[in-house]
């Protein structure tokens, strides 16, 4: 398996400016470490040869980068207009009760982290949530329960 440095070096070749490579590099770092630690951001900066603060700017701008540890499954519920109109907030409440955590928290067993995010770009199938890299669309409470159940089984 290629290490992070090699992967970032390779991907950075596609860009005219190393700063343009920050986002894909951060994704690679997040993939490796689970979330963006201080050391991970410094490593990305060092590999790309740019100031650490430039990496930190990008990492803090986007919600897709986790600055805190997240559970095995990171549930990101869209609460932007279309999803909100179709009941996203009810879903969030349901998830809070079901998982016993608040938004921004992780379950004790380390399985689930619940977040609300802005538009996921799938308004046609609202309400939508994203768990890790997978989209779940046209959600209802029942569908959500089913998804959580499947993930729990998958994990055990």
């Amino acid at each position: 398996m290629k290490d992070l440095r090699e992967k970032i070096r390779e991907i950075s070749k596609r860009y005219p400016d190393m700063r343009s490579a920050i986002m894909p590099a951060l994704y690679l770092a997040q993939e490796k470490y689970g979330y963006l630690t201080r050391e991970a951001m410094e490593e990305v900066a060092e590999i790309l040869g740019i100031p650490p603060v430039a990496v930190y700017e990008v990492a803090t701008f986007y919600t897709m980068y986790n600055k805190e540890p997240v559970g095995k499954y990171h549930i990101q519920v869209c609460t932007n207009v279309s999803c909100m109109l179709l009941g996203a907030e009810t879903l969030v409440d349901h998830l809070r009760k079901r998982l016993g955590i608040d938004v921004g928290e992780t379950t004790k067993d380390g399985l689930f982290t619940l977040s609300t995010v802005e538009c996921l770009g799938s308004c046609g199938t609202a309400p939508v949530m994203q768990i890790n890299d997978t989209y779940y669309e046209d959600l209802t409470k029942e569908k959500v329960d089913e998804i959580i159940k499947t993930l729990k089984e998958e994990a055990s």
């Binding site: 740019i50 100031p51 650490p52 603060v53 930190y56 700017e57 803090t60």
Partner: peptide, 25 residues
């Protein structure tokens, strides 16, 4: 800091109303 001094030690952290001009971490 970046354009004249060349130190690039400060950045705009976060976004929107929560933007904070500060150092790395």
């Amino acid at each position: 800091c970046e354009e004249i001094v060349g130190a690039s030690a400060l950045g705009s952290i976060g976004r929107g109303v929560k933007t904070e001009e500060t150092s790395f971490m």
